[in-house]
Amino acid sequence: MRQEIITDAQLVSNYIKGEEKALSTLIYRHKQKIYSFIYSKVFDRDLAEDIFQDTFIKVIRTLKLGKYNEEGKFLPWVMRIAHNLVIDHFRKNNRMPKFDNSGEFSIFSVLGDTALNAEKQIIKDQVESDVRRLIEELPEDQKQVLVMRMYNDMSFKEISERTGVSINTALGRMRYALINLRKVVDKHNIVLTN
C-alpha cells in the first residue's frame, strides 16, 4: 500500500482550518531538527526545552491568529523563530549575568572581558557590512542624511547647510531612513545582532 505523505503546507492549512491533529504531525515530524538545533546553541537540556516550547507557542499563536503567510516554507520559518529566541535568551543573559550559588567566589563573576573575541568581531563586521548594504538601498536623499549623521558624525545643522534643506527636512529624512531600514529588516527577517 502506498503511503501518502502530506506536505507541511497542507498540514499548516489543515491546522488553520481547525484540524488539531495536523499540528501534532508537524511537531512530531520536525521536533528533532528544531530541538537539536536549539540544544546545539544552548547546551542545556532544560533551557532547550523552554525555548522549544516558546517557539511552538509562537507558531501556534501566529497560525491561529491567521498571521502566517505562505511565502516561506514551514520548517525554515520555525527555525528562524527558534534562532531569534535563542538570541533573545543570550541577550537577556548578557544584560543580567547570573551568579551561581556554588559557594565559591569566582573573580569572573564580577570581572567581565569587554573586548570582543574573534567570533564576536567577525559577527560585528558582518552586521556592519549588512547595514551598509541596506543603507545602499535607501532613496538617495535619505541615504545622504543618514550617512552624514551616523558615519560622518555631522550635526543636523551642518547637514542642512551642506544639503541646502531645512533642519526639519533633514530630521524628517533621517526619520524616514530609519523607518525604511526597519521595514526592510522586518520584511526579510534579517537578524542584526551581536
Binding site: L23, S24, I27, Y28, Q32, S36, E49, Q53, I60
Partner: peptide, 13 residues
C-alpha cells in the same frame, strides 16, 4: 539530547 520531552510536546498540543 536530540528530542524534546514527551511532556513538552503534550503541553503544546
Amino acid at each position: 539530547n536530540q528530542n524534546p520531552r514527551e511532556e513538552t510536546v503534550k503541553f503544546l498540543l
